[in-house]
């Protein structure tokens, strides 16, 4: 474990807590894409399949349980909670996210480190996570006024993988043979997808204005 990875995990945890805070306290998921939440639930379900077969540390297992539990409970809240589900703007959140799942699965069947069931699904989860934010970014473009919590959620979610990139550089420099191109490229693409969001987020923060993405 290194400081970059810890910062990444804490940033990721913070993003999840911000979203749960928003949904649980003000019982609203306005501006949040259910499609992105469903994709993230699939990402964690396919990435943490080894949670019962391989143990690294209490921390590792605990964080996996937190991410699995939070992503599925957010999907449950947005789909079935009587108050929250009413605040979900269904007609704006129209990204065909299933069109992201299949290409990622096909790509994982083609490009992976080992052709085993767990490895292919793990690779699939990396590819899917890289594009999972797209429905949310599209929804943000359509939602005129983005509330602070939603903006912070997306900002933190985008930042965590950026810290992971620093972690990969650090591990590449300090651990011999630590080379994982698939993880690195997927992580880089994922972070780059946030580039314009980060730009407008900083602009709004600098000018102390409401966050608005250009249509």
């Amino acid at each position: 474990m290194n400081i970059f990875r810890l910062a990444g995990d804490m940033t990721h945890l913070a993003s999840v807590l911000v979203l749960l805070l928003k949904i649980h306290t003000i019982k609203s998921c306005a501006g949040v894409s259910l499609k992105t939440q469903e994709l993230y639930a699939i990402v964690f379900a396919t990435r943490y399949l080894d949670i019962f077969t391989s143990f690294y540390s209490i921390y590792n297992t605990l964080m996996k349980l937190i991410f699995l539990g939070s992503s599925f409970s957010i999907v449950w809240y947005m789909r079935y909670h009587k108050t929250v589900r009413r605040t979900y703007d269904r007609e704006q959140d129209t990204f065909r996210h299933w069109f992201l799942v299949l290409p990622c699965l096909l790509l994982a069947l083609l490009i992976h480190e080992k052709f085993t069931f767990l490895e292919v699904l793990w690779t699939f989860s990396l590819y899917l996570e890289a594009v999972a934010i797209l429905p949310q970014l599209v929804l943000l473009q359509r939602t005129r006024n983005i509330d602070n919590l939603t903006g912070q959620y997306v900002f933190l979610l985008g930042g965590y993988r950026g810290f992971y990139i620093l972690n990969w550089i650090y591990r590449y420099l300090t651990e011999p043979h630590f080379v994982h191109w698939i993880t690195w490229i997927a992580g880089l693409v994922q972070t780059l997808l946030y580039a314009d969001f980060f730009y407008y987020y900083f602009q709004s923060w600098k000018n102390n204005k409401k966050l608005q993405l250009p249509a």
Binding site: D9, Y56, K64, H180, T183
Partner: peptide
Amino acid sequence: KTTKEAKDEL
């Protein structure tokens, strides 16, 4: 070994 290593990340 190295591939196993990658799995220690979240």
